[in-house]
Design a protein around this nucleic acid. Structure first.
Lengths: 163, 163
DNA sequence: GAGTCTATTTATAAGTG
DNA sequence: TCACTTATAAATAGACT
């Protein structure tokens, strides 16, 4: 759906790939959002960019869906799809999924307070682009903190110096 | 993208909803597959239909992605999105920003000057009326960083002063 | 990077068998 | 519920800012 037809294969040019990732990611999230609204289904998407940066979408939120997976998983009859040769993997996938989801549950319990806080915070956020701004903001703040601490350290040293 | 424009809202007719769910679900999975191939990203989708039937898609598979989430999750800084009315978006953004600022505040307790600046920022955040303010905030942060550099420069000069 | 602009391609709503 | 068709809406590739 662009100026020209493209093949579905790894985009070689790094810059183009980055652009494609960004555009299609937001497209995917939008579609997911529409689906969840129109059909009242719960759904979660988690992804890691080529550079391993995590992104996720959830309706009503990722955790809720993950929790549901936990409940359902044991001897699940879920309909699974994946992009590699499907047949053998499905059984294995189900097994592994059980383990992982159990672990996830444990993890969730450990950081319950934090998780809840995060969940609350993230509950009603919708706009994808704006969120990336938030992330940037958070990053900027942290960076600034580091610099500040460095300055403070310097100040401390200075104060200790005999005049 | 059909014979006529439709609103994105819960489809009332059960039959139509079922059809929509089926079509859009496969569309979503297809898009996900394209994205993962074109951009080399790992991604997983899990969903529950209105009737609670589970469906999932994963590249390379759901487990691998879930496992990756586990590694990252503790104090994750993942970019999260979820769906709900835009109305509440700003409030929640504010909350998130406030939380971030609070965390930052804790980390920065040592620096009084900075603390004050942060307090001011928090107040500003509480007055958010528009997302464009985010940009302002970012700008302000950059400005603060400049101030910081100025302080550092002064320190450097001070150090050079004969005692 | 993130936005904007369009020519095109793609997804899909509604209809049909 | 499935497949298939088709008119139309929506997504997006590529170019540019």
């Amino acid at each position: 759906m662009g100026r020209r037809k493209i093949e579905i294969k790894m985009v070689k040019d790094l810059n183009t790939r980055q652009v494609t990732f960004s555009k299609r990611r937001s497209g995917l999230f939008k579609k997911a959002n529409e689906l969840s609204i129109m059909c009242g289904c719960e759904l979660a998407i988690v992804m890691f960019s080529h550079g391993n940066k995590p992104y996720s979408y959830g309706h009503p939120n990722v955790d809720a869906v993950a929790a549901k997976v936990l409940q359902k998983e044991p001897n699940s009859n879920s309909v699974q799809c994946n992009s590699s040769s499907n047949d053998e993997k499905l059984n294995k996938l189900n097994e592994e999924l059980n383990d992982i989801m159990e672990q996830t549950y444990e993890e969730a319990k450990k950081g319950e307070a934090l998780d809840k806080a995060l969940e609350e915070k993230k509950k009603e956020l919708e706009n994808f682009q704006d969120l990336s701004v938030l992330e940037e903001l958070r990053f900027n703040i942290k960076e600034r903190m580091n610099e500040l601490e460095a300055v403070e350290a310097m100040l401390m040293i200075k104060e200790q110096e005999p005049i």
